[in-house]
């Protein structure tokens, strides 16, 4: 059979195959015959070769450690004449283990060179860094800004149905202004709320407005003393959050107040 005959025959065979698939395929997939095997590839010219260096394995166990712990690198290499690991380990044998103590996550690269070629492989040891310890304990108990405010601020008290800053309220707010300036400097994100409160005797509606004016008057006084106004918010509780619930002047006076609390 000549080459052209072979080509012809294969063309016919191909046409028949296409026809067969076209006829058979739509109705019955199962009956499609397996495609003919591909033609054999041309056999490569048999050239004598030298085996290429190959890294068969390169592992770190464990691959994640806590800082201060160790990990073991293990490797297996064939056909290499020259093998090394970076990060200060240097030349190694074709099979071996090495304990490492990385202080931070480190990627180790194993390089194997041989006459037939080279190979590299990397492995990474991840190091978890624990959170820093708390700063050394101060000699005395250290208060948060909110605790400092709560413990050291003073309420400003008002007369019945009034929002004028009395002399005693002036003293209290002057001390509060110093305290706030100190806290604001130490704690740049800290804000303060001036709460306005009333005693139970006025109407709840009018007291809502009165508490607002008391809080606002106290804020204005603090701002005049140099406290940053944009870090002071006011809220009126009217008579909704009394500090004292008895019906006598001592108790009523406790409730007619401006009170400082930590903002959010």
């Amino acid at each position: 059979m000549s080459a052209s005959d072979r080509l012809h025959a294969s063309k016919i065979a191909a046409a028949l195959l296409v026809l067969t698939i076209a006829v058979v395929a739509p109705g019955c997939k199962k009956k499609v015959p397996p495609p003919p095997p591909p033609p054999p590839t041309t056999a490569p010219a048999s050239v004598p070769t030298v085996a290429r260096a190959a890294i068969n394995s390169f592992t770190a166990e464990p691959s994640t450690i806590e800082k201060g712990q160790s990990s073991t690198l293990s490797w297996s290499i064939s056909n290499a004449t020259d093998m090394s690991i970076d990060n200060g380990i240097g030349a190694v044998q074709s099979r071996g283990q090495r304990q490492v103590f990385p202080t931070s996550s480190t990627t180790y690269t194993l390089t194997a060179n041989g006459p037939g070629g080279s190979d590299t492989r990397t492995v990474t040891v991840s190091v978890n860094t624990p959170p820093p310890p708390p700063p050394a304990a101060p000699t005395g108990p250290r208060l948060s800004s909110a605790e400092t405010l709560q413990q050291q601020s003073q309420d400003a008290y008002f007369d019945y149905d009034k929002s004028d800053i009395r002399a005693d309220a002036r003293d209290a707010l002057t001390r509060d202004a110093g305290l706030l300036k100190q806290i604001f400097t130490q704690d740049p994100n800290f804000t303060v709320v001036v709460e306005g409160h009333c005693d139970e005797r006025g109407s709840a509606e009018y007291n809502l407005a009165l508490g607002d004016r008391r809080a606002s008057a106290a804020k204005d006084f603090l701002v005049q003393l140099g406290v940053a106004g944009d870090r002071i918010k006011t809220i009126s509780y009217g008579k909704e959050r009394p500090q004292c619930t008895e019906a006598n002047e001592e108790c009523w006076q406790k409730n007619r107040r401006a009170h400082l609390s930590a903002g959010q």
């Binding site: 948060s144 909110a146 709320v193 809502l208 918010k233 006011t234 809220i235 009126s236 609390s261 930590a262 959010q264």
Partner: peptide, 19 residues
């Protein structure tokens, strides 16, 4: 009229917002 609650955040308990 209500004082909407502001949810708690780190270091701050939940508090009422302005009415």
């Amino acid at each position: 009229t209500t004082y909407p609650m502001r949810p708690a955040s780190p270091g701050h308990p939940a508090t009422e917002d302005q009415p």
